[in-house]
Structure formats: C-alpha cells, structure tokens
C-alpha cells in the first residue's frame, strides 16, 4: 500500500497541507491527538487524550499494565480507530513513509534471510537491487551487516530485535512507534539497544514514541515523558537533560522519582 493511501485511512481530520517553508524541522508537528476516546464494548480504555507532539521529538509513554498506553500506540499506527475525537498527522515528506511500528516481539519471517526481512520494510517503497542495497546499509548501521544472509533462527534475542529495528527504519519513517520492544531483553543487551536507538534517532531525526514500563529507560532516552493513568494523561514532563546522558545521574534519578510518585502516589 502506498504511504499516501495509508495516511488517508488514518487521518480523521484532513491534514493541513502546508506550503512547506524552509523552517526548522522542530517547528512542525508530527501528530496530534485531540479529545481521543477509545472504548471496547463498555470498557473505556482511553478517556479524552490530548497530545501534541512536534516533529523529531522523542516521547516516552509510561503507565501500569492495562492503562491504555499500547492502545494509544495502535491508534497512532493505524492499527485501530478512535471511538471519538481526532488524530491528526503532520504533512508528509516526499520519499518518506509515514509511521512504522516496532513490536514487543521481533516478528521476523523465519523463512526469509535477515536481509530479506529488512526488505519487508521497503514494501511498496523500493524493490530489487535498490531494496537490497538499502537493507544492507541499514543492517550496517545496526551492526549486523555480516549476518545478512543468515536465517533469523540463528540470531540471539537482541540481534533479532536489531533486525526488527532495521526493518522499521529502512523506509525512513517520520514516526517510529515502539511498543515495549526492549522488554524481553536481558538488562545489558537492553542498555546496548537503548544506546543504538538513541544514536540512530539522533542521526535520522524521526519522531519516536516509545511505550515502556521501565521508568529509567524512559528518562534516559526521551525528551518528554507522558504518564497515562486510567485512560488519561496524568503527567506530561519534559526531560531537559543534555545528551549524551549519563545513566544513574542525580538529575535523571530525580525525574524518575517524580514519575514514580505520580504512578504510585
């Protein structure tokens, strides 16, 4: 499906088409939720979410299990539709596909080689030799260029998730939605992946929305942390800490405390 028609399905209010002035990327909006509600039967999962995210921002969404944070992400990625309210996506940039989704599990095709799995991210964007070359380039960025022709089954958990990251990024998305993609990794691999994610995000400047249950991960990576509780935004906190951030610094620990207080206070 071409990116344009995907956008058409997902915009519930027509996206404004700006004259694309040569202003800084940060000035533009990536997406906005306005009064978004989502109900499954009688159960209200999201209850009036307002969230405006500028282009290029790294947002972490935190909440307890069942608070609706994954639903928020699925709405953003177009996997679900809101019951009411609107979701507006910013203007589309040429040659870039809109939103990519990184799942909790790697979800690689076991019958396709690593490089072919990455090429899945170019479906409808590029094919043949060009797709292969782009897939190899991004595999190099996640440090797996030498594993391109292997089957996914021989990779470790962290390596599989790096292939999934490469697949998500190969089409140069404007928004990357991450649904606890590091949750199943061991602690050390996890920190490695966080650093990789931060490095690629700094280089490519896409908008990242990371759903996580790990407060330390959120404050280490994000520009902004949104806490969701009972379907509403309970806290919207900026993380004004310069990068590279030092894990375990007093500043991050203080922010972490604020968030934990709000979650359990």
């Amino acid at each position: 499906m071409p990116a344009a028609s995907l956008t058409a399905v997902r915009s519930f209010v027509a996206a404004p088409v700006p004259a694309r002035p040569a202003i800084a990327v940060e000035g533009r909006r990536a997406f906005a939720f306005k009064g978004v509600e989502k109900r499954f039967g009688d159960k209200t999962v999201l209850d009036g979410i307002d969230l405006d995210v500028p282009s290029g921002q790294f947002v972490a969404v935190i909440g307890k299990s069942g608070c609706g944070k994954s639903t928020l992400l699925r709405l953003l990625a177009g996997l679900d539709r809101p019951t009411s309210g609107s979701l507006t996506l910013g203007a589309e940039e040429e040659g870039h596909s809109r939103t990519r989704f990184m799942f909790q599990e790697p979800r690689l095709l076991p019958w396709a080689s690593v490089v072919k799995n990455v090429e899945v991210g170019l479906t409808g964007i590029a094919a043949g030799a060009e797709a292969w070359q782009r897939a190899l380039d991004i595999l190099g960025e996640v440090g797996l260029a030498d594993r391109a022709d292997e089957w996914p089954s021989v990779l470790s958990g962290g390596q599989k998730q790096r292939v999934a990251l490469a697949r998500a990024l190969v089409g140069h998305p404007q928004i990357l939605a991450l649904d606890e993609p590091l949750g199943a990794l061991d602690a050390l691999t996890r920190i490695e992946m966080q650093q990789l994610l931060e490095r690629i995000w700094l280089a490519q400047k896409f908008t990242a929305v990371l759903v996580t249950h790990d407060v330390a991960e959120a404050v280490a990576l994000a520009d902004r942390v949104v806490v969701i509780s009972e379907g509403r935004i309970a806290l919207d906190l900026d993380v004004p800490v310069a990068r590279p951030r030092r894990r375990g610094s007093a500043e991050l620990a203080r922010l972490e405390g604020t968030i934990l207080d709000r979650l359990f206070g």
Binding site: A77, L79, S97, R100, A112, V120, G121, T123, G124, R167
Partner: peptide
C-alpha cells in the same frame, strides 16, 4: 502476529499470501 506485521508494513493480499501465509 506475522500476518499483522505484514499488514502494518503495507503488504497487499498477494504479497501476504506468498511471503507470509504459504511459507
């Protein structure tokens, strides 16, 4: 989950069948 992944990444019915379901 793989079928959902295929859809999210924009595979049409044909691609979904030959690349995900049949294998």
């Amino acid at each position: 989950q793989l079928v959902e992944m295929g859809r999210v990444y924009g595979m049409d019915g044909r691609a979904l069948f030959f690349r995900v379901i049949l294998p």
